[in-house]
């Protein structure tokens, strides 16, 4: 299995494209992969007018968003803005949500579907806080990731690919996941999500709590994963780093989508710069985005606080 050396310029290997379209998506649209840049395909995920509630509290109001196949899209926003809620809503892990709106993935309505069925349509999710299975070994964790895959040989191939991305996991195959460090658990969580060969990968704050060098490594890998044909939707507080790997971005504020555009547009947007990247170059890359106290006060709306 060839492993692209440099994530950005490497053209996707045909293997990568194959394994990413193996996800068993019912309509079987193969991931188009260009040679020069990330191929921009059609709309893979379409969210329209979604509203999510926690009890009486509205956490998302009228959020609409499209994710194009083969791109990295980043969702920025302060604590409690509803970023994690949005991912949770897509994945169907919030009971009875969304209350309004539609979510379409690869032409199929997925809102209201059971989570385990949504997984089978080709979406994988790395939740906040990693959520690895602490008593299972690294290898068993990855095996659970491949639960929906029948074909043992393709699982074997995907496993090799995951070990290529994260050689460290290969060294610790038999170690219980609970004994791994935070960074290692993050890698395991990403690896586990890749095991069912998703077409769309949802990542919730992959850089949270990681050392700067690991943050860079994780983002390199995200970029590499996308180059191999997996579409990525990413929630991140580390806006500076995220906008470097992202193609598109949106900003959520208090449950509403306030800005959307290409990553470049967002990076050039003064307001975004001020709110999420700190003032100019003094902010370090690992720092979480500063937020105004006014926004910080809205914690209660979102579970992520």
């Amino acid at each position: 299995m060839d492993n692209p050396v440099s994530p950005r310029d490497a053209a996707s290997s045909p293997d990568g494209a194959n394994s990413s379209s193996r996800a068993g998506a019912p309509n079987g649209a193969s991931a188009p992969v260009g040679a020069d840049a990330r191929a921009v395909g059609e709309v893979l995920l379409e969210i329209q007018g979604v509203e999510t509630y926690y009890g009486p509290l509205r956490a998302l109001s009228d959020v609409s968003l499209t994710v194009t196949e083969g791109t990295v899209t980043v969702i920025l926003g302060s604590n409690g803005a509803g970023k994690s809620t949005l991912l949770g809503t897509i994945m169907g892990v919030l009971d009875g949500q969304p209350q309004c709106g539609t979510i379409t993935f690869g032409g199929e309505r997925i809102d209201g579907m059971a989570t385990e069925k949504i997984v089978r349509t080709g979406i994988s999710y790395v939740p906040e806080g990693r959520r690895v299975f602490p008593e299972l070994s690294v290898r068993e964790n990855l095996a659970v990731g491949a639960y929906t895959v029948r074909d043992r040989q393709s699982t074997r191939r995907t496993l090799d690919r995951v070990y290529d991305y994260f050689p460290l996991l290969a060294d610790r195959q038999t170690q219980p996941a609970g004994t791994l460090s935070g960074g290692e658990q993050q890698m395991l969580a990403i690896g586990r999500a890749l095991m069912n060969g998703p077409r769309l990968l949802l990542l919730d704050e992959p850089s949270l709590g990681l050392a700067p060098i690991l943050v860079r490594q994780v983002f390199d890998i995200i970029s590499q994963i996308c180059d191999e044909g997996v579409t990525v939707l990413l929630v991140e507080q580390n806006a500076r780093m995220a906008l470097k790997v992202a193609d598109d971005g949106v900003v959520l504020e208090n449950g509403e989508l306030v800005v959307s555009g290409t990553a470049q547009e967002l990076a050039d947007n003064d307001e975004v710069e001020e709110l999420y990247m700190g003032t100019a170059s003094t902010t370090s890359e690992l720092g979480t985005a500063p937020y105004s106290s006014e926004q910080g006060a809205r914690h209660d709306v979102d579970q992520e606080s």
């Binding site: 994945m91 892990v93 989570t115 385990e116 997984v119 089978r120 994988s124 999710y125 939740p127 959520r131 690895v132 299975f133 602490p134 008593e135 299972l136 068993e140 964790n141 659970v144 990731g145 639960y147 929906t148 586990r192 999500a193 095991m195 069912n196």
Partner: peptide, 15 residues
């Protein structure tokens, strides 16, 4: 076992 340890995490893996 995965379900016993973290049922939500098992669900998002298709269990």
């Amino acid at each position: 076992q995965a379900t016993q340890q973290d049922s939500m995490a098992a669900r998002i893996n298709g269990v």
